[in-house]
Nucleic acid binder design. Structure first.
Lengths: 335, 335
DNA sequence: CTGTTAGCGCATTCAT
DNA sequence: ATGAATGCGCTAACAG
């Protein structure tokens, strides 16, 4: 099967008539090497199609050149965008990423973190999740860590996130400005801090506008489409009238849209609809969805770059990311 | 920073009063160990919170316990489902996955494959992509390989795929049975074999029904939503009437849906619409989309399991995956 | 069943 | 600037 024996640093040393050390030096460029020798080494490496053994290197150097990414739910467009950004940010560096999926379950996340650390990753990027801050802080003692999509008190200077509270406030404000007074909210899983922040921003905006928060207009979903559909059903069951719905993410907005359609309710003429996350296909909904854009790719890229900095023991300055209200056609001014 | 020195097999050997070898044996369970010693070792490992160094292990054993996954486009729901399946299939095994993204570009794929191999992965799973079969076959000589989502002649017994041609044939047949005669097709990128197979299945079904293929009713898209929208525009520009559209994937169907909506054309009353892939939110479109289900998660899982078999040098028997027409509300019988 | 001995391929002192 | 020597932590023969 593997006819050609693994060629090692030794082989190329012989071929280039130098010592292993010299070869190692041109490999790591940790010390100067005479130009002619370096050339000979390079030539030999090329001719023999040499590939350093990453394990030997890792064992000897203590570095894995791998950064571990703990994510949740590969399927989510939002998280995918972040992952894409991370890959992009790592591009060109000598680091690779290895992913594990926490599936939004704290125990699984711990397990995933464990395997990552067990794989001697040089750093960890945590994307979202439920793990308590203390757990992550502990991880942070073992390896450089960057958290994206969450704000963790214990790791304040290592988090990349957006202000969900403010964004939700702005959405609600926008709906109010359009003349809506009875605005329903489909919240995300409320054990998740983002969901809470979005709901709170919504409530606060209402209060600031002098409108009492009506609990009957708030339904908790789970960030998935189906829960958006169910939430609208729930709203009708409760019988509280509403002229607008603010869903805590686009997926739930999609579900809500279908529920409205089933009841013959038109969007935006009868009910306005706003989502959150600006996932790609939201622009292609019928009608195109007004939503909040989170610069997911950029956040992922920033996370990767920050990690690279940390690994070089350089100080990191995390950029600030802003959300943006993307106005499309699912909201219309109330007469 | 790292106050506590790395604890090694040696430490736990001393603590358990056995030799390193014995510890190694309980670790790898390659040989029987007396129950009491095993217990002592386990206890010591637990108390010292021991984590084997994966590099040392890899170096000594020649195994990386890592399988490399080459994928395209993290953002696609279909590919994500496959990845999720792979992760799922690896779950419980001692293998981890490491992902790289080929971004649908042959050169990038080659590069990605190279880094994967450079990382000494024990096996490679290729998801989709453009790499020529010969390239993949070459990779297959260096490490076990499984290909999912493509059928490659050189690697016939290593591919997991579905019969796109037949599925497309069935879709078209379904539309014909519903009374449609002027059926448009929005193809995917035709440099991609799946796109070709789907188009060909469509054409064949028409021919078998005695209907001449009308080139003006076929538009090439690129699998993305926007191209679906553009395709419909193109169709109208061409002026060929049609009563149904078969898009080569759901994303393009979404785009097509919006284009129709913009022109005030109702689905399914005025035009029937069918997609392909059954991505999650298709069930929540307005109206819910009739589409072809590809068991993506199952395919990914099967790929992982097959890989595990290969790594154990056991013969693999790849399961056959069938597509299924998922009938929802975007098609109505023509009067 | 268990301990002893040799490396795995490379980075990194230490000499020179 | 370069070679020789040492060891990273573990697995895998080899004895016993």
């Amino acid at each position: 099967m593997e006819q050609n024996r693994k060629i090692t640093i030794q082989d190329i040393a012989e071929k280039a008539k130098v010592s292993k050390s010299t070869v190692s030096r041109v490999l790591t460029s940790t010390a100067r090497v005479a130009d002619d020798k370096r050339a000979a080494v390079l030539k030999a490496m090329d001719e023999l199609n040499y590939r350093p053994n990453i394990f030997a290197r890792g064992l000897a150097s203590g570095q894995s050149l791998t950064i571990g990414v703990l994510t949740q739910n590969f399927g989510s467009p939002f998280f995918d965008a972040i992952l894409r950004g991370i890959l992009q940010g790592l591009n060109g560096s000598s680091y690779s990423a290895i992913f594990t999926d926490g599936r939004w379950q704290a125990e699984m996340e711990e397990e995933a973190l464990r395997t990552l650390l067990g794989r001697q990753v040089d750093g960890v990027i945590v994307v979202g999740g439920f793990s308590p801050g203390a757990t992550l802080a502990r991880v942070g003692e073992q390896a450089p860590i960057i958290v994206v999509g969450r704000r963790i008190a214990e790791l304040a200077d290592r988090c990349i996130w957006v202000d969900n509270y403010q964004a939700a406030y702005d959405v609600t404000r926008y709906l109010l400005d359009a003349g809506h007074r009875r605005i329903a909210h489909i919240a995300g899983t409320l054990s998740h801090e983002d969901a809470v922040a979005r709901r709170d921003g919504y409530m606060r905006a209402l209060q600031d506008a002098g409108i009492a928060v009506n609990r009957a207009l708030i339904v908790e979903g789970d960030f998935r489409s189906h829960s958006g559909l169910m939430a609208v059903e729930m709203l009708f069951t409760r019988g509280e009238p509403f002229s607008a719905i603010f869903a805590a993410n686009d997926q739930m907005a999609v579900g809500a849209r279908l529920a409205l359609h089933r009841r013959g309710i038109r969007v935006p003429q009868d009910v306005a609809l706003v989502g959150f996350d600006n996932q790609v296909d939201s622009a292609y909904m019928v009608p195109p969805l007004t939503t909040v854009n989170q610069p997911a790719v950029e956040m992922g890229e920033a996370a990767a770059r920050a990690m690279l900095q940390l690994l070089k023991h350089q100080p990191v300055q995390l950029p600030v990311f802003r959300t943006e209200l993307v106005i499309r056609e699912s909201v219309v001014r109330l007469q």
